[in-house]
Simulated assay, not measured.
Amino acid sequence: MESDNEVRSNGQRPVERRFEQIIGKSPALESAFADVEQVAPTDSTVLILGETGTGKELIARAIHNISPRCGRPFVKLNCAAIPFDLLESELFGHEKGAFTGAIAQKIGRFDMANTGTLFLDEIGDIPLALQPKLLRVLQEQEFERLGSCRTHRVDVRLVAATHRNLIEMVKRAEFRSDLYYRLNVFPVTLPALRERKEDIPLLVAHFVKVFGQRMGKRILNVPQSTMDALTEYSWPGNIRELQNLVERAVIRSNDGLLPNPLPQSANYQHNQFTQGVFADSQREVILKMLDTCGWILGGSRGAASRLGLKRTTLIAKMKKLGISRPLSESDRPQLTEQQESD
């Protein structure tokens, strides 16, 4: 086994050490790792896409940790957690007296992240009124604090994340198209937990160990019936939901056995309704990935590879779920003048 200090002959740490905080070996997750390996050495903006609870912050940290900026600041901000009237100050800072309650100068997150990486989670929640200022700092690497005319220059690598469909938000005029294209330089899509079920036993073992040590409980065995229930569940809350339920199971464990933490309603829902729900969610995920890949199916950058599927398997799923590529204007049949008048 390689030590923490061991590196490859080219000076880079092995892949498994780079992503040691991210549990899983599924093809869908490995595809995301490959994207991170490609983009991390650059200074390009990265947009991490994925459902809530899929581990977007861990991927952002991995990008920073294997980049040339490792060892410099890694600053994060959840844009959805900050009230609108405070978000501009959080991002860019303010001068004393800039507004009521500004009793001292405040340094913003862009200043804090200078020479390092700024991770903006839930970027889709940034208000329209603030988006031009964010676009400017991404393009020019400069901004003014609230209450100041002095321009500050920074050297910041931006990593953003969202669970929202920004393309649909642009269509509804809820998100600026120029900001979207500036953010979407290099998208990294994280699979939902239901798309990487082979990783669930690894995640369960990891969380059992963590919570067992924290609570002073020794879990000797995870019954096959419990593992089967966890593996078959659809996990709408993804890894975060799994983590919380394993913690609950460890609390309730007796005699070294891990009980099934899923509520009876969830088990019933799985037995009765999961197939339909899963099909709907699977259709949404595939459509989102096809849009991201420009409806390219095969190849290393195609939707099949990113979803961890064979091209033929993806085509079969698309047929089963009724997914077909939308017609472009040039593909649409043209009506004659007589047909139009009719």
Rank of each mutant, 00 (worst) to 15 (best):
T52H: 05
P27D: 01
R153T: 11
R283S: 12
L146G: 07
I48G: 00
L146I: 15
K56H: 02
Q338K: 09
R157C: 01
Q105L: 07
G308W: 09
E90F: 07
H94M: 11
R218Q: 14
V204N: 04
R311L: 06
D121K: 05
A160N: 03
E232G: 02
F273M: 10
L230M: 00
I22T: 01
R61N: 10
R325N: 09
A205R: 13
C293Y: 05
Q21V: 08
E195F: 10
R252G: 14
I82W: 06
V159L: 13
Y268V: 14
V204T: 04
F211W: 05
E284T: 14
A173S: 12
Q12V: 05
R18H: 04
S26E: 02
R150H: 10
V170N: 00
D280L: 14
R196T: 13
Y268H: 12
K56D: 03
Y268S: 15
N254L: 07
S9N: 11
D255T: 01
T45N: 06
V208H: 00
F175Q: 06
F186C: 03
R172G: 01
D228Y: 05
Q339M: 01
S341C: 12
K96S: 02
S67Y: 05
L220I: 06
K76S: 14
G124D: 05
V137M: 09
I200G: 00
I59L: 03
Q338N: 02
G298D: 15
R164S: 10
T189A: 15
N165C: 06
E16W: 03
G24L: 00
L314F: 10
I200D: 00
K320F: 06
R332A: 02
R301W: 15
K197W: 12
G55V: 10
H206L: 02
A40K: 11
T117Q: 07
I286K: 08
I126M: 06
D331R: 15
E88P: 00
L118F: 12
R283W: 06
E6G: 07
L220R: 12
A229I: 00
L202H: 04
I167C: 05
G97Y: 00
E6M: 05
A34F: 02
I107A: 10
G97I: 04
P187W: 14
D331I: 09
L193G: 10
K319D: 05
R196S: 14
E142A: 03
R196G: 11
F119I: 11
E174V: 07
D111N: 13
L287F: 01
V250C: 14
Q213T: 10
A161T: 10
S324M: 11
A34P: 03
F278K: 13
G50I: 06
M289G: 02
T189S: 11
G256E: 08
A129K: 11
D85R: 10
T100C: 06
L242N: 09
A80F: 00
L262E: 07
R306V: 08
S341L: 13
T292N: 13
P261T: 08
E340I: 15
E140R: 12
C149M: 15
Y181I: 10
P223S: 00
A304I: 08
G53E: 04
G53C: 03
